[in-house]
Design a protein around this nucleic acid. Sequence first.
DNA 1: GTTCTAGAAC
DNA 2: GTTCTAGAAC
Length: 189
Amino acid sequence: KSDNDSDEDKKPVKKVPHWKGGLLTSMHDSDAQVYTDDDVIIIKDKYPKATYHFLVMPKENIPNLKSLKKENVELLQHMHEKGKEMAEKADPDLQFRLGYHAVPSMSHLHLHVISQDFDSPCLKNKKHWNSFTTEYFIESEEIIEELKKNGKVVKDVNHSQELLKKPLSDSLCCIQIGTYSTWNMQIGT
DNA sequence: GTTCTAGAAC
DNA sequence: GTTCTAGAAC
């Protein structure tokens, strides 16, 4: 077994592990799966940022929001429905939000279904917090509406990434911050 | 996406 | 001294 087919996967430099594709691995991990049907798979987030944190993913390979086409509207609605059902099933008393990150790190379209207690040791820094409490978190309904109206979804990436650096001065933050066990970042007000 | 860490900031 | 930030990870 010597080196013959080393064109693609044996470059000496700049070979970063494929963590971006980690979701595809999780998709087929039966331990992570909590629901499947013909069109979608729901898994538990590997690093949940709240008590309940699910990811709803289409089986169809859609890389990101930019790849969405008008004919995907029904699929998104289906994802939203199943996400809502999963939230209800998990805990009907908790509040949930369903939405997408403006600039997700992981490849493969995924809808976040996350309880609003944000009580988790995996919620460790400002970026984590802001990605679920600022406009960086885009409501599922908003995406669906925009896709219906324009046939595509466009977001200003630069602006979105700035959102993650905002100070922690949102009122919601001040209320919620008391629930953290491991996160003691200082807040703005 | 996480982990680790050097250097800045406090 | 500790905390925070930004960048590399083969």
